[in-house]
């Protein structure tokens, strides 16, 4: 549970670089809608699915593909080695 919380915080930190004050609400919404779980239940195995859905959502917010790719890559790196 502590590891999951830490992972959630890492996801939040990455997302804040893109969405600022709206980051928490965005991440919570993605986890709830697409993973059907509470934020503290997030695990590394969920990150691939989360990243895929976040790509779709982010693409609706910006036309800059580099920003979207950068964000998704950083999320995926959390699954691989736990760092961004």
């Amino acid at each position: 549970m502590i590891k999951a919380n830490s992972l959630y915080q890492d996801v939040l930190a990455v997302t804040t670089d893109y969405l600022g004050p709206a980051a928490r609400r965005f991440v919570d919404r993605q986890i709830d809608s697409h993973l059907s779980k509470a934020p503290e239940e997030l695990t590394k195995s969920d990150l691939k699915t989360l990243a895929a859905w976040s790509r779709v959502s982010m693409a609706l917010l910006t036309n800059d593909k580099q920003i979207v790719n950068n964000y998704v890559n950083r999320l995926m790196s959390l699954a691989n080695n736990g760092t961004t």
């Binding site: 804040t16 670089d17 893109y18 969405l19 600022g20 004050p21 709206a22 980051a23 982010m58 917010l61 910006t62 920003i67």
Partner: peptide, 9 residues
């Protein structure tokens, strides 16, 4: 001061 590339735009 606020963070967030997309949010700032």
């Amino acid at each position: 001061s606020v963070q967030g590339i997309i949010y700032k735009k």
